[in-house]
Simulated scan of single mutants.
Amino acid sequence: MESKKIYQTLEDRDNPDQIEQEGPFPCSWNNSWLGTGHYFWDTFIENAHWWGNTRLNGNYVICEAHFDFSSDTCFDLVGNTQHMIDFENSIKLMKSKNLLQNKTTVARVLSYMQKTLKIFDYKAIRVYGVHSKSKHLKPNYLMKFELDKPQYLDYKPAIQLCVYHLGGLNFRDFNIVYPYDYVSGYVV
């Protein structure tokens, strides 16, 4: 198992004590990419800041936490090729049953894997939302492979984790790391 550092970006409602006592907070938006769960940015705090500036208009709090990452408990569509194949096979099965439409989303496929196929028994999922951030964002953390070609490496990709069940992941150390005046022990 690997210990992972993750970040949750929340709207700043001037409630730091409540955040640290009651967090993390689940997201249940109708258009949640991966279904209802606790959403985090994997490893790179820059992505948490990007989300706070883009989605929350600069009015945000970032909390850091740790959990024990394992492909046994986290469906990893970033680094586990077998999980990618399992996801593809579920899509193929849905297609063969005419359940796949132009409007089918990732969340719908995951729901099918959980509720119908009963093959998704993971406590979390890890994904990389390609084109989540603009290539024109500064800084953008992109490096070309060849100067005259469009291909590039994103070395701080927008990897998200959606934690469905905090138990069993050794989730720990949830605390505010931004803004600094909310950080415990911060002195001006």
Rank of each mutant, 00 (worst) to 15 (best):
D17H: 04
G185E: 02
I176Q: 10
S184L: 12
D72Q: 05
K149M: 13
Y112K: 01
V106G: 04
P150Y: 07
Y152N: 11
R108Y: 15
P179T: 13
G52D: 06
S132F: 15
Y152F: 07
F174N: 11
K5T: 15
I91L: 10
G168L: 02
M84F: 04
D181K: 14
E22D: 13
V109C: 05
Y39C: 07
D14P: 12
G37N: 01
Y7H: 09
N47R: 09
F171K: 09
L147K: 09
D68L: 01
T105Y: 11
W33S: 08
N140H: 05
F44L: 09
V187Q: 10
L10R: 07
T105A: 13
H49F: 13
S96M: 04
N170M: 05
Q18P: 00
F69P: 06
G129R: 14
T54L: 01
K138Y: 14
Y164V: 01
Y164H: 06
Y182Q: 14
K156C: 11
L10F: 13
V61C: 10
G37K: 01
F171G: 08
V130W: 08
N59C: 05
L110G: 01
K115A: 13
N170R: 11
T73K: 02
F174A: 12
Y155W: 05
K4M: 14
Q21M: 09
F75S: 01
L100G: 04
G185R: 05
F75P: 00
F120Q: 07
V187G: 03
V109M: 02
F120V: 01
R108E: 11
L77R: 03
K135C: 01
F40I: 07
T73C: 00
G129F: 12
Y122T: 02
N102T: 06
L110W: 02
S70L: 00
N98Y: 01
T36E: 15
M1Y: 10
E46W: 12
T54Q: 05
H165V: 07
Y155P: 03
L100P: 11
I6Q: 12
N57E: 15
V187Y: 08
D86K: 02
W50S: 06
I45Q: 15
L142D: 07
W29E: 15
Q21F: 04
Y7G: 14
V61K: 09
Y141A: 04
Q101N: 13
W50G: 07
D181W: 11
L56S: 04
K123P: 02
S184W: 08
L93P: 01
S28D: 14
C162K: 00
I119C: 12
